[in-house]
Amino acid sequence: MTLKRHRGLTEQAATAAVDQACRMLRLPTIRAQFPELAEAAARDQMSYRGFLAELLMAECDDRARRRSERRIKAAQFPREKSIRAFDFDANPNIDPAVIHTLATCEWVKKGLPLCLIGDSGTGKSHLLIALGTEAAMAGLRVRYTQATKLVNELVEAADEKILTKTIARYGRVDLLCIDELGYMELDRRGAELLFQVLTEREEKNSVAIASNESFGGWTKTFTDPRLCAAIVDRLTFGGNIIETGTDSYRLASTRAAQTQRAASG
């Protein structure tokens, strides 16, 4: 279908022509916002160039927003978490300046690792997801997974003779977020498969992990001492290590809420 050009179109015909052109050119935001922006342009006596710039910027901004939403969805985060929603006052072990610097995602662009170490309820997963979300919003490819799920997937891939393909898929993303590392004991095969993923990404793409165990306790997860040392080396070399502490924020919040309810009752 082609559009015929006419001079001196009526307002109604011009609006219909814009609508049809936006459909053909796949400009949904301009199509949706054109009437409102046109009225504002006339009211503010905006120049033709200014009006065109407003339309195009609206389309670009909306496309950027939709791309961010697609990347966040592709990352497969289990829930929404943000830096803004993190309670730094309740987590004094965590330096806000460090987290806000990490939120710029320069470490991801440089392919550096990040380790979040601390007890359950201290904000590790929140920060892991929030920083992963920041990376996705910055235009980077991100994937979130739990350590047990990743290892199970690798074992199944090895059994089905598609291990190379699976490792390559995890190797392509700019940031791989591995949560709950240290909650389980891995046999040698599982540990070696996880090590292959880390090796595939070494000094090329970033890995961020959250673990309830300090590095000294990782021998419970990776029972082979040499393999354990090699994995710790892969996850710490040149990267950031953030210790979130031992005091559970969730537990403290629950107790505070119970105390408040009892006082008000």
Score class of each variant (00 low, 15 high):
Ile129Gly: 03
Ile129Pro: 10
Ala130Trp: 11
Ala130Thr: 07
Leu131Asp: 04
Gly132Ile: 03
Glu134Val: 00
Glu134Pro: 00
Ala135Ser: 03
Ala135Leu: 00
Leu140Thr: 00
Leu140Tyr: 03
Arg141Tyr: 00
Arg141Lys: 12
Val142Asp: 04
Arg143Ala: 09
Thr145Asp: 13
Thr148Ile: 13
Lys149Ile: 09
Asn152Ala: 13
Leu154Cys: 07
Leu154Glu: 07
Asp159Pro: 00
Asp159Ser: 13
Leu163Gln: 03
Lys165Phe: 09
Lys165Gly: 01
Thr166Gly: 01
Thr166Ile: 09
Thr166Pro: 03
Thr166Met: 13
Ile167Phe: 10
Ala168Tyr: 00
Arg169Ala: 14
Arg169Val: 08
Arg172Ser: 11
Arg172Pro: 00
Leu175Thr: 02
Leu176Gly: 06
Ile178His: 04
Asp179Gln: 10
Asp179Val: 07
Glu180Asn: 04
Glu180Pro: 07
Leu181Pro: 03
Met184Trp: 00
Met184Gln: 14
Glu185Cys: 07
Arg188Trp: 00
Gly190Asn: 05
Ala191Ile: 03
Leu194Val: 03
Gln196Arg: 12
Gln196Ser: 11
Val197Trp: 02
Arg201Gln: 07
Arg201Met: 12
Glu202Asp: 11
Lys204Thr: 11
Lys204Ala: 12
Ser206Asn: 03
Ser206Gly: 11
Val207Leu: 09
Ala208Trp: 08
Ala208Met: 15
Ile209Gln: 02
Ile209Cys: 04
Ala210Cys: 12
Glu213Pro: 01
Glu213Lys: 15
Ser214His: 12
Ser214Asp: 14
Gly217Thr: 12
Trp218Ser: 06
Thr219Met: 06
Thr221Cys: 10
Phe222Gly: 07
Asp224Phe: 05
Pro225Thr: 06
Leu227Gly: 05
Ala229Glu: 12
Ala229Met: 02
Ala229Lys: 03
Ala230Leu: 04
Ile231Glu: 02
Val232Thr: 11
Asp233Asn: 04
Asp233Trp: 02
Leu235Ala: 01
Phe237Ile: 10
Gly238Val: 07
Ile242Asp: 03
Ile242Gly: 03
Thr244Ile: 11
Gly245Ala: 10
Gly245Leu: 08
Asp247Cys: 01
Asp247Ser: 10
Ser248Phe: 12
Tyr249Arg: 14
Arg250Thr: 10
Arg250Ser: 13
Ala252Ile: 02
Ala252Ser: 15
Ala252Lys: 15
